[in-house]
Amino acid sequence: MKNVVTTRREAAGLSQGELAEEVGVTRQTINAIERERYDPSLELAFELADHFDCRIEDLFEPELDGNGSES
């Protein structure tokens, strides 16, 4: 899933490890999310949105096909 976690994190002046610590996951998970290799759970997506004080859809952009379902 496309996301702007890297942009938001860097704007907040945080390292991947610091963000990971803030939201209670490992640095490797933040890295995987930023590289779009892992889609976070709804719970983690809410944690990240809450941390950056924005909505989930401001952080993540699902790749939808023509029918509106995720491809």
Binding site: A20, E21, V25, T29, A32, P40, L44
Partner: peptide, 10 residues
């Protein structure tokens, strides 16, 4: 420190 998380579980 968080050593295992949801990604490890997946």
């Amino acid at each position: 420190v968080t050593l295992l998380d949801e990604r490890d579980a997946e």
